[in-house]
Design a protein around this nucleic acid. Structure first.
Lengths: 141, 141
DNA sequence: AGCTAAATGAAAATTGTTTCTAATTATAAA
DNA sequence: TTTATAATTAGAAACAATTTTCATTTAGCT
């Protein structure tokens, strides 16, 4: 089943513009994470001219849902990734440092962390960041 | 038992300079995470004049060990924190978004993640980032 | 079709961080 | 204790990534 970009955008209370559709399309066509500037380059191929701020703004807006996720690389630069199985519920990612491929991790230890934070520390969790970096099967050798 | 900054620095194969000792001292005196620029301000109080690059370099160098840890805030700015119980072995942190306090989490799900990455995905882990953000006990109300 | 709020373009500013070179300093060896 | 040398620092400047501003355009309702 193909993903309905149109309604994905609407779900986020955003207007459906050609640029936003194109950004989703570009990200969805990659199995790897990409930088805002890379998205910008691909957008220029399609639209001739487009401002970099527009790309930044839209990536940020679209990353409010589960479809597009932000990846914080060890180099602390920002990347984005189209999450093809975002309907699989909450999960995290294994990120290949060589080929930039992203793979799903089923495991999320948040339940246990939550127990510890709410129980022992008496705090409340607002968000969490769990990302695992390494070499994928293909890049290992 | 007080922490021996002198040998902490040596362990990292770094020279023991007044600036490095001061940075450790400044960070250790805080229960919260601080930005490079905040460290810089405090360093200027002590040394009159000191370059911001020196602070950046030293924070980065000192964060190679377990004593000083880097915190990636949701705002993607970089912060540093003196890890008072770094001898407790590998662990992660609960980070209060309001008062910047940092608390230890005993739990690290890495073992299970490792099983999944090495077993199912046939990849290898290079590093991982697990940080939990929220409101601490005091800031909750 | 017309209205209104949201989205965009363009240029510039901002922010955080790093690079460079020369001068200084900590450390190990003599 | 002095010397040698390799690491550290200052200072200025460069740099890159991201964001702001504001005027113009466009999407989505009525």
């Amino acid at each position: 089943m193909a993903i309905d970009f149109h309604s994905s955008i609407k779900t986020l209370n955003l207007k459906v513009t050609p640029k936003r559709l194109a950004i989703l399309d570009i990200l969805a066509s990659e199995m790897a994470y990409v930088s805002p500037e890379e998205v910008w380059r691909k957008m220029k191929e399609r639209f001739g001219k487009i401002g970099l701020p527009t790309v930044y703004r839209n990536l940020e807006d679209l990353a409010q849902g589960d479809l597009i996720i932000k990846i914080i690389h060890p180099d602390r630069k920002l990347y984005y990734y189209f999450c093809h199985n975002s309907e699989n519920g909450h999960h995290h990612h294994f990120i290949c440092l060589t080929c930039r491929k992203v793979e799903d991790l089923d495991f999320c230890g948040l339940e246990e962390i939550k127990k510890e934070v709410e129980g022992h520390l008496k705090g409340s969790i607002v968000s969490h960041l769990i990302q695992v970096y390494g070499l994928c099967r293909g890049c290992k050798q």
